[in-house]
């Protein structure tokens, strides 16, 4: 496992917050860190291939793009859990899917552009073999969405 240096942590802290929106964003990041563009890019490629970065890119406000989200909990017969989890994974709108310690043992978030489309998907999932119950927990207000880990 690659160990994170002080430089890495400073780099990742900037990268998590804001990639500059300009022609040479990594040069701008390098300037803030007191180094050069090629050093930043080389280290980011290493950290990415070592598995520290889940995703680098753009994070949208799904509501403002016309999508709405629901957290869905399934009670799945243990023997069918793997097959159901894989079936859920195949829907592009199912972005997070976790097995959890609860009688509702599979929890996923579903983003869809219309209630009709959501209902169609959830009807399909509810009818999968092994799905014994389903909770639909529609998101109302999002108070916090901030997946940033301050590295020290």
């Amino acid at each position: 496992m690659t160990r994170l240096s002080t430089f890495d942590k400073a780099l990742l802290n900037i990268l998590q917050g804001d990639i500059p929106i300009c022609s040479h964003p990594f040069a701008e990041m390098a300037r803030r860190l007191g180094t050069d563009e090629s050093t930043v890019l080389a280290r980011l490629r290493e950290l990415k291939s070592a598995g520290f970065l889940r995703r680098i890119g753009t994070f949208f406000d799904s509501n403002r793009l016309g999508y709405h989200g629901t957290l869905v909990a399934l009670k799945v017969a243990p023997a069918e859990l793997c097959a159901v989890a894989e079936a859920v994974n195949r829907y592009p709108g199912a972005t997070h899917n976790y097995e959890r310690e609860c009688i509702y043992n599979l929890w996923f978030t579903l983003l869809t552009p219309s209630p009709e489309y959501e209902s169609k998907i959830l009807t399909e999932i509810r009818s999968l073999r092994g799905v014994e119950d389903m909770l639909k927990l529609k998101a109302n207000k999002k108070y916090k969405i901030n997946v940033q880990f301050k590295l020290q």
Binding site: L53, R54, I145
Partner: peptide, 10 residues
């Protein structure tokens, strides 16, 4: 419409 440009760590 964009919340952030950035990375999510594992």
């Amino acid at each position: 419409k964009i919340r952030k440009m950035g990375a999510v760590l594992r």
